[in-house]
């Protein structure tokens, strides 16, 4: 049974037609790149798949069960979201922010215990943040803040991770590190990542979903659909595929 499946999914926001009758069949172990120009609805589609904003029509199934029949808490155990932006108003420590990821796993009257703190510490360690765990998040740099948000997602440990531009604010070292962690840690999970870097998509993703912006979509295996032709039409620019050392890159031509 597929982990995440959509049937006749239509999503719109304002005048933008994000997808028409989208049929997806996604499985554990797959990593999907979500590509499209600015404003084609990548974030909205991520929110819809997480049940955070309603679809116009169609159905989403998680493990064969309609998403509408899950409670918010059940969804949070299955699906984790890394949002594109966060707007933290009140002070909070890095540890407190990370521990929030345990929320769906705890009962109403239960408090975070030693086990939960251990899980959070492990996530902080993976994000090189253990030394900063008592710092107020408002004193962090943009990249440290992003890693805290990722640590929270790792602590939540969902089956499906929806990542909205995860490498925002990250330096190259942490970009590669974070992408590798997602690839390695979540090997038995399903990852859907909205991206602007095609070369990251070719390197780290097994599948891709291209949003044209007019409701048309292309989805499939990354090596089959990430072609010069498709990408030139998607972004409206001239692109070339360059190969070296057995790897290949897409480079835009400026003229």
């Amino acid at each position: 049974m597929s982990l995440l499946k959509t049937k006749n999914l239509c999503v719109r926001i304002g005048n933008i037609n994000i997808c028409d009758n989208l049929e997806l069949d996604m499985n554990a172990g797959e990593s999907w790149a979500l590509l499209g120009r600015n404003g084609t609805g990548k974030s909205t589609l991520i929110h819809t798949l997480a049940g955070l904003s309603p679809a116009e029509s169609g159905d989403i199934f998680i493990n064969g069960k309609n998403l509408d029949n899950y409670s918010r808490k059940e969804i949070a155990k299955k699906i984790g979201v890394l949002f594109q932006t966060y707007n933290e108003t009140f002070p909070s420590t890095v540890m407190e922010s990370t521990l929030a990821g345990r929320h769906p796993h705890l009962d109403w009257l239960q408090w975070e215990g030693k086990q939960d703190i251990k899980i959070a510490e492990q996530s902080l360690h993976q994000m090189d943040l253990l030394d900063l765990k008592d710092r107020d998040i408002h004193t962090l740099s943009g990249g440290e803040m992003r890693r805290t948000q990722i640590a929270c997602l790792l602590t939540q440990n969902p089956d499906i991770a929806l990542l909205d531009e995860p490498s925002n604010h990250l330096d190259m070292h942490h970009q590669i590190k974070v992408l590798k962690i997602f690839r390695d840690l979540l090997r038995d999970k399903l990852i859907i990542t909205s991206l602007h870097d095609i070369n990251i998509a070719t390197r780290f993703c097994t599948h891709a979903l291209l949003l044209a912006g007019d409701g048309k979509t292309i989805s499939g295996k990354a090596n089959e659909i990430l072609t010069e032709n498709n990408l030139q039409r998607l972004y409206g620019i001239d692109l070339r595929k360059i190969s070296a050392d057995g790897e290949s890159w897409f480079i835009p031509r400026y003229n």
Partner: peptide, 20 residues
């Protein structure tokens, strides 16, 4: 209180973490 802690971070984030 745990729900309040999470809602204080943001409504969308709280929903994604399982708060009604």
């Amino acid at each position: 209180a745990r729900q309040l802690n999470i809602l204080a971070r943001g409504e969308l984030q709280a929903s994604a973490l399982g708060v009604n």
